[in-house]
Write a protein that binds this DNA or RNA. Structure first.
Lengths: 149, 149
DNA sequence: CATATAATTAGGAACCGTTCCTGATTAAAT
DNA sequence: ATTTAATCAGGAACGGTTCCTAATTATATG
């Protein structure tokens, strides 16, 4: 995750304006990075810092950030999309119970050159996710007679 | 991918009824397995076999099949969800140009025991995807001056 | 084969996170 | 201070998916 100054600098260099709303959103992203927050949570947190932030501004800013590769957008169908600042290749462990997302560092990347040779496919970005239950949810579901949570 | 008979058998065993609509949907899934078709495509193909298939029946049947682990539902946000019969652990190479999904067999699985020991997370199912451009789209985008497609 | 019953079907309404659209506002450069 | 291009807020629109209901149908049983 970049720090606030480097993001502001990147914004200026791209010709993007530094607005109080964007500052608030960026701060939320950094403070809540471990939570992999969704647009809704970012909106609620950003409004605590500055009341005049609209949901469309949050979406616009998150779109700008992810389009420029400053953050990564994790897209889901059943669950709202989430955002993360950790751009290193890693596995996301996603809890089906509470939605928590845990970063797990592990060397599971494919060799792009080998993939291209075998299939002609040019890899750009990856999505490595395992779904299951986090420690807390496993404990919570135990004792309820739920053998296979 | 199971064959038609084994799916029909599994249906009977679960107490699910064998209807012409379901037969049509299952046949489409087997014939178009390599396409990783979405609900819309399955609906259109199934109607060719039997006119009296509704979209809601397609969704209901696909839901039944994936809930029972007979097929796997690949969920997306921007793209319609897709379904696949290949239940072996593999990587899906997903083309941003045309939506094609290529199955790539590679040993990229994590060790569930090690993950559980380090994080307490109980892994259930995985999602290993790489996004990029397939051979055809790379060729198509070349010559358009599009250096980085 | 007739009947009872539980399950499935068709069609449309509802859902909801996300995107799009507009006029009003604001930051940045000169 | 002025100009101009970009951003903001609010709400409408979107679209794949899910939910809902009455009508239909498959299956088991005698």
């Amino acid at each position: 995750m970049m720090n606030r100054e480097s993001i502001v600098k990147a914004f200026r260099e791209k010709g993007l304006k530094i607005t109080p709303q964007r500052i608030a959103i960026i701060e939320v992203l950094m403070e809540k990075n471990d939570d992999h927050p969704g647009a809704g949570a970012i909106y609620r947190e950003a409004r605590k810092k500055r009341r005049s932030v609209s949901l469309s501004t949050v979406y616009a800013t998150l779109g700008e950030l992810s389009r420029r590769g400053i953050i990564k957008k994790l897209q889901f169908d059943q669950m709202e999309n989430r955002y993360e600042g950790n751009l290193e290749e890693h596995v996301n462990l996603i809890c089906k119970g509470c939605g928590k997302i845990i970063d797990y560092e592990a060397p599971v990347s494919l060799d792009p050159a080998k993939v291209a040779r075998k299939t002609g496919f040019q890899m750009l970005d990856s999505r490595l996710e395992y779904y299951g239950y986090c420690r807390e949810c496993v404990n919570r579901l135990k004792g309820k007679g739920d053998r296979t949570p």
